[in-house]
Design a protein around this nucleic acid. Structure first.
Lengths: 216, 216
DNA sequence: AAAAAAAAGGGTATTTTCACCCTTGTAAAC
DNA sequence: GTTTACAAGGGTGAAAATACCCTTTTTTTT
């Protein structure tokens, strides 16, 4: 039997049901075949390091994985194997994650509720033209460009303060924990209220949670 | 050709890639076949109402769906078709959701990262024995039984108050919005601080967010 | 029908939060 | 070598939040 001329695809996804099922789907396409599946970023990167010359036309990379998630995996690929073509797969359209995957070099971002037809189209597009972006993703890239212009950047001490503010401690207690005068804390607070356009400590807590400065 | 004697399975899942791929996987099992797929609870329930006599051995029901989610769909099934056997499928192990699905009659709860072997085992178990629960799920049922004993139940007005407290409004403003005296609000606050074992409004906000009384 | 619990409101005092204005020392920019 | 920026800190006063005391009315339980 002569070597296959089909496009070689690798799936990296911890959802075994999905991963294995998706392989069946892809293998049912005429010009594509799945040559390998991995259950998280770590084992996939190990494979890449051991077999740097393996022929791979496309990687389907899940975003939400244990051990080494999609973003971290993508970062490694950007650093070490920018030649690889990756389509990110995810169930959610979390803006932050999408942006991270793309700025780290993903050539496409598909939601898992994509139809098999669009899916096939995306695979072909990435292999032939080098990219595939839906309107959803393009829209986010435009939105990001806007957001960037009015970005708020918090200093390290401010972030520490915010974390303390998201507890039941008083400002006085926070000051003593941070080894600063209560008046300095008062200054941090006023500055943040101004920058973040809020008026109360409650607003600060809500901001911190929304922007994942503190986790709940 | 004589009618199939295979077990008839229905998939309800909005993730088309997954849904279609899973069908391929199930059809590759000897004794099972997928007779229908639906992309959300609404279209599935419509089908059930139009074809009440359709033969179905098992339903694979995704939890996270648009239009009509898994929990709502499960509630309808409990009310109207408790004879149907359902395995809930989900990507996350959110305790609250798992409990809801099971108390509404799901016969099993599988994470989507289950291996195809376990998956097959679960399908067989539900069809033959009527249920299949992993240790994860059993553990949660035990934990729930414990939690129930020390459950805090919030009254409707308290919940309204908490939602207001999670904004930058003052108590005085909240009182006027709720058409109550500030003193009454003061009473709500004190009572909640006591019940929830907190000392400040910040604590109340954190509690509300953690328990999904308010969303961020 | 009496007792208990809950829901609404009041008084007073303390602590905390917030706003606004100001000083000093130090490091970076021009 | 000024100017600028900034981090740290101070004073004062008003508003908000919190604690702990209380009464009245209604509803629920027994």
């Amino acid at each position: 039997m002569k070597p296959s001329t089909k496009n070689k695809i690798i799936i990296v996804d911890d959802h075994q049901l999905f991963s294995q099922s998706l392989e069946l789907l892809i293998n049912s396409f005429k010009d594509f075949e799945v040559i390998n599946r991995f259950e998280n970023g770590k084992v996939f990167l190990s494979y890449l390091q051991e077999q740097p010359d393996a022929e791979v036309d496309l990687i389907l990379l899940d975003v939400n994985m244990p051990v080494l998630d999609g973003v971290s995996t993508m970062k490694w690929i950007k650093e070490n194997r920018p030649d690889l073509k990756v389509i990110a797969l995810s169930v959610n359209d979390d803006e932050e994650i999408i942006i991270k995957m793309i700025t780290n070099g993903a050539k496409g971002y598909l939601l898992k509720d994509t139809s098999p037809e669009i899916f096939k189209e995306a695979i072909i597009s990435v292999i032939e033209k080098g990219f595939y972006f839906t309107e959803l993703v393009s829209g986010m890239l435009v939105k990001k460009a806007n957001d960037d212009s009015k970005k708020i950047n918090l200093k390290e001490k401010e972030i520490v303060f915010i974390k303390h503010a998201c507890t039941e401690k008083t400002y006085k207690e926070i000051a003593s924990e941070m080894c600063l005068s209560p008046k300095t804390i008062d200054g941090y607070r006023e500055c943040l209220f101004d920058k973040l356009e809020i008026k109360t400590r409650i607003g600060l807590v809500l901001y911190a949670i929304k922007h994942k400065i503190v986790l709940v």
